[in-house]
Nucleic acid binder design. Structure first.
Length: 818
RNA sequence: GCCCCUGUAGCCCAAUGGCAGAGGCAUGCGACUUAAAAUCGCACAAGUGUGGGUUCGACCCCCACCGGGGGCACCA
């Protein structure tokens, strides 16, 4: 009778030992070993860790621990994304300082991570809410400010009425606040922006080097988000205006079909065209109705088109035609020039508008499809030009070339590009974030805080009303906000807004290299040693926001001379979500599975194994399909093997049972391949297989004293150390070794043992299997065919018939076509 | 509406174009037990969503459709 495996005792036994040995402390910058930087997305400290964290960190851990075993100098750090609204909301509820809530939660999560046995280097950790960290946010902001990459402007911004703060475009999902699901409205405000649009082309083009290393899904999402469009700008004269206006189109070939012009109703240009004219009242009424509509209304695609005629006319430069100008909300003020030429026959939106308001529709491209006048469906394919004067008969693309040449020579048009991407709005009217290091002086205007005065620390929250009210709570901290101008010493005020917390996370991966430095954001040599990140692991929820911003920051810092690379994350793994009964776990849904409960019931290792084994890492896991009890059973079986080994450590494995050794080395080979290709579920299946084979060898094969059995057990322990570190360490001790198994080294596969003595070859006639044959794996094609023809059943089938073709794949199959 | 991913035993999942099954869960039977749980052993099952095509040969490649998931959705 075996003693029972007591996971609780094993956990309590090894944790303090590892704390002392620190098996995952990364080496210094001049370590001779090749480096690997494995990075998990850092958590937001809202309460304790949950199932999603458990999965993500288990996966990252497999990778980090594997490279440690392989002898790499691995850096695997963790920190906390510690600024943000939840801390502030919790503080408001409890009338406390957000600091307290945040640091308490960090302590809770850190303790959980230690128990969860994450292979983090605890000497490299950071909290973005520490002044030692956000000082460098401010420094970075000023670097960008000095380069003109951070600027202020007035514009209608996304406003969340619930959070009482502005949102970046990326934080608005289908018209709703991504955080609280409130309907987002527009508000005219003066705000800080980062000029990410300057980097649009590079952000797009550099994705070529990420191809195959990042999930296609993420690359596609980023490409869509940037939304580069290649087209043309064309100037149109306006009757009664001195200067022509410019429109943007991707379909220059349809220029002759432009039967009207539409300007964005909420643009300054529309207001100017309307002002003082007879339709001004009507226009204002329309504009008011447009402004009242929420984003959700605007986004409804089946919404009927509306607009108002501005009683003005433009001249189509292609044919001199006088076309009416309308204002409508289906044209966006902040894309292109906010003015379009409308070609209803070949653009569905324009067609819908023309039909709704009774405007002419002229087909100018013959595509062979039904006439849009009758079908109501715009024909958007390229084709042959008609109704287009001298261009008639030309193919679309030829017409474009001819037109652009003419327009260019008359300075009426040129090739142009547009992007869906907008500049990144970073100011937030909240307390718990990085203060923007700018002082507003009546005389000098915006004055950057001198570098020597950084950080601009947040004042104490005591006495401040943190409740959202549309302006930053910092504005009320009079001791803090009132300062003298660094330039002229006159009384001035600090900028009271704080930065979007995505600013914090856009460069934290650089800071890990230099957490103990207070004189620089990051040490150049350390960064050049460790970066770029070799493997980044995190949720697909950050496919656009965080990953796009981080790529942007890396390029900016590169251009400023601080980095020698332009992409921060070489490889990216997106783990799936952990669901319960088909939907995301949440307290309100009542389907929340508490991680701490599961850990108490089944132990850390069993939970880690269960999560990793549940399926491919990028797939969602349904917890109702997961069996932590089954995982614990498996760990038990593995652990018992260590107790059944009766040979001494150091015994020569070469003297062991060859059959088992072959299984062992085949498994080892498969395990390595599976880990390196992120098929961690397969990796565990292979370990299970090896455990089963070893069990059999002990019970009914070569027995527990055979060196091959020890070899198998040691390889099981080391492979298991990637996923189930406690069980592995316990096995390692039982096998007579000293801790830590994390540093045992990855066993080397003996290629000679991967060769089978004999393999089974399939014999087919016309693709149908008629027999099997045992042959040597090194058999030649010729010999295999001879052997196949000699087979009784084959010979019988082939006798008297003509073999049209024989396919011989050594050493797998022979197929005779008759 | 457009684009992408996906569909294999009751369930989760494996299978460089070459014997559909590696592993697990669940289930059934047996061993141990006074009994049960745990444990151990054995067994069970699909012809790969549907219809075409390419190929000597297709879960794998191509086309269409169906179901599931995701992204984009007035960006001219």
């Amino acid at each position: 009778m075996h003693e029972a495996y007591d996971f609780k005792a094993v956990q309590d036994k090894w944790l303090p030992v590892w704390d002392k040995l620190q098996p995952f402390k990364s080496g210094s910058d001049d370590d001779a070993r090749p480096k690997k930087y494995v990075l998990d997305m850092f958590p937001y400290p809202s309460g304790d860790l949950h199932m999603g964290h458990a999965e993500a960190y288990a996966l990252g851990d497999v990778i980090a621990r594997y490279w440690v075993q392989k002898g790499f100098n691995v850096m695997h750090p963790i920190g906390w994304d510690a600024f943000g609204l939840p801390a502030e909301n919790a503080a408001i509820k409890r009338d406390a300082d957000p600091r307290q809530w945040t640091y308490e939660n960090i302590a809770v999560q850190k303790a959980s991570m230690r128990r969860y046995a994450c292979s983090f280097d605890w000497d490299r950790t950071l909290h973005t809410c520490d002044p030692e960290y956000y000082k460098w946010n401010q420094w970075l902001f000023l670097q960008m400010y000095n380069k003109g990459l951070a600027y202020r402007k007035d514009s209608a911004v996304n406003w969340c009425p619930d959070c009482q703060t502005v949102l970046a475009n990326e934080q608005v999902v289908a018209g709703l606040c991504e955080r609280c699901d409130s309907a987002v409205t527009k508000k005219k405000l003066n705000q800080w922006y980062l000029k990410i649009t300057d980097y649009a082309d590079r952000l797009l083009d550099d994705m070529d080097q990420l191809e195959g290393k990042w999930p296609d899904k993420v690359l596609t999402m980023q490409r869509n988000w940037i939304g580069r469009s290649n087209g043309f700008e064309v100037k149109f004269e306006i009757e009664g205006e001195a200067d022509p206006v410019t429109i943007y189109t991707t379909r220059l070939d349809t220029l002759h079909g432009a039967t009207f012009m539409v300007v964005a109703a909420d643009s300054a240009f529309a207001a100017r065209l309307a002002s003082g004219s007879s339709i001004e009242g009507e226009f204002k009424k329309y504009l008011d109705s447009v402004k009242a509509a929420s984003d959700i209304d605007r986004l409804a695609t089946d919404r009927p088109k509306t607009g108002v005629f501005l009683n003005r006319f433009a001249i189509n430069p292609a044919n001199g035609e006088r076309i009416p100008i309308w204002a409508s909300d289906y044209v966006l003020a902040d894309y292109g020039t906010g003015i379009i030429m409308a070609c209803p026959a070949h653009d569905q939106r324009d067609l819908d508008f023309a039909k709704a308001l009774g405007l002419p529709i002229r087909v100018v491209i013959e595509t062979g499809e039904a006439d849009p006048n009758e079908s109501g469906v715009a024909t958007s394919d390229y084709g042959t030009l008609i109704n287009s004067g001298t261009l008639n008969g030309l193919a679309s693309l030829d017409a474009v070339e001819k037109l652009i040449a003419e327009l260019e020579s008359k300075k009426l048009g040129k090739r142009a590009r547009n992007y869906r991407l907008r500049d990144w709005l970073i100011s937030r009217q909240r307390f718990w974030g990085t203060p923007i290091p700018i002082i507003h002086c009546e005389k000098c205007g915006e004055v950057p805080v001198p570098e020597s005065q950084l950080p601009v620390e947040l004042p104490s929250a005591t006495g401040l009303d943190l409740k959202p009210k549309g302006s930053s709570p910092l504005g009320a901290a009079s001791d803090w906000v009132n300062v003298s101008c660094p330039k002229c010493n006159a009384p001035a005020k600090r900028d009271a807004d704080t930065m979007d917390t995505f600013f914090d996370s856009s460069w934290y991966y650089l800071r890990y290299t230099s957490v103990d430095r207070d004189d620089v954001a990051f040490d150049k040599k350390a960064v050049e040693t460790w970066l770029p990140v070799d493997q980044y692991v995190g949720g697909v929820t950050h496919a656009i926001l965080h990953l796009l911003y981080s790529r942007f920051f890396t390029k900016v810092l590169h251009d400023l001379g601080h980095l020698n690379f332009t992409e921060p994350f070489t490889r990216l793994l997106n783990q799936g979500m952990v669901l319960m009964d088909g939907s995301a776990m949440s307290k309100s849904r009542g389907n929340l599975v508490k991680l701490s409960d599961e850990l108490n019931t089944h132990g850390v290792d069993a939970i880690r194994v269960a999560l990793v084994f549940a399926g491919p890492p990028e797939d969602d896991i349904d917890w109702s399909d997961v069996s932590p009890a089954g995982s614990l059973k498996f760990l038990n079986r593995a652990w018992r093997i260590a107790g059944d080994i009766s040979s001494k450590p150091g015994v020569n494995f070469k003297d062991g049972d060859v059959a088992l050794r072959k299984v062992t080395h085949k498994s080892l080979n498969d395990i390595s391949l599976a880990v390196e290709s992120f098929r961690f579920n397969v990796c565990i299946a292979r370990i299970m297989e090896l455990v089963n084979a070893t069990r059999k060898a002990i019970d009914s094969g070569c027995g527990g004293a055979d060196p091959a059995v020890r070899e198998a057990a040691e390889i099981i322990a080391i492979a298991l150390s990637l996923v189930a570190p406690y069980t592995a360490e316990e096995m390692w001790e039982k096998l007579g070794h000293k801790p830590a198994i994390a540093n045992a080294g990855w066993p080397v596969v003996d290629p000679a043992l991967l060769e089978d003595d004999a393999v089974e070859v399939v014999l087919q006639i016309n693709g149908k299997i008629i027999d099997r044959l045992e042959v040597s794996p090194s058999i030649t094609k010729e010999n295999l065919e001879i052997a196949a023809r000699a087979n009784e059943k084959v010979a019988a089938a082939l006798s008297g018939v003509e073999v049209k073709k024989s396919i011989v794949v050594a050493p797998k199959l022979v197929n005779f076509v008759i």
